[in-house]
Simulated assay, not measured.
Amino acid sequence: MSETVKAGSTVRDFDFWMGSWTARNRRLRERLAGSDEWEEFDSTSRAWPILDGMGNEDDLHTDFQGGFVGMSLRFFDPETRLWSIYWADSRRSGLLDPPVIGGFEDGVGVFEGDDTFEGRPIRVRFIWSRTDTSTPRWEQAFSEDGGDTWETNWIADFTRVPDAT
């Protein structure tokens, strides 16, 4: 486990995320290619608890690049006090990506895991920040050198949608 991955989370860490959201997304046009061109698009998300609160699920909907639907599954391990986060989307036939694992410290969540990108081994990192506000941020970064350097390639700034009730 990377030293940036924290083992001190609680099952309540993602309570801030439950509900409905809109997001402004910025994503690098080309990843791990030295690009500094960003694409921007909007999305909506909705999150809810599963497994009697030991996990949660969300979905993401966007019209970007012809439209796609994505989903995250998060599971809390009370023994290790770590979260595992899995991603899948409709562009990839519903395959689950390998998990990123980590936790929260001082309201910031850091989650890392091994994956591949275009056939190359990489390290993936998700960071959740501003979790104590109505505008949390999620970031994704890739590393080709085992986590020594990172390229942030996707940033989503969320705004809570007020309940319709």
Rank of each mutant, 00 (worst) to 15 (best):
G19V: 03
R29Q: 06
R26Y: 03
R31Q: 14
I50F: 08
L51A: 05
E40C: 13
A23L: 10
L28F: 07
G53K: 07
S45E: 14
P49G: 11
S20L: 01
G34W: 06
R27H: 09
L32W: 03
W38M: 03
R29I: 09
L32S: 03
G53D: 12
A23P: 01
R26D: 09
I50L: 02
W21D: 00
E37W: 12
D52T: 02
R24C: 09
R24W: 09
L51W: 05
S43A: 15
R24N: 10
E30S: 12
A33F: 08
M54K: 11
W48R: 11
W48G: 12
G19T: 02
R46Q: 15
D52A: 03
D52L: 08
N25R: 02
A33T: 07
R29C: 09
P49E: 14
R46I: 14
L51Y: 03
A23K: 00
L51G: 10
E37H: 13
R27P: 00
G34L: 03
R31L: 10
R46G: 15
A47H: 02
S45F: 13
I50Y: 14
S43G: 15
W48M: 09
A23G: 04
I50R: 11
W38S: 06
E30K: 07
T44V: 15
L28K: 00
W48N: 08
T44A: 13
W21K: 01
W21Y: 05
G53Y: 06
A47L: 12
L32Q: 03
R46T: 13
D36L: 07
R24P: 11
E30G: 07
G53L: 09
W48A: 10
G19Y: 00
R24M: 11
F41R: 02
W21F: 05
L32A: 04
D52H: 04
W38C: 08
G19C: 01
P49Y: 07
D36N: 06
D52I: 06
S20V: 04
R26Q: 03
T44D: 15
D42V: 15
L51E: 10
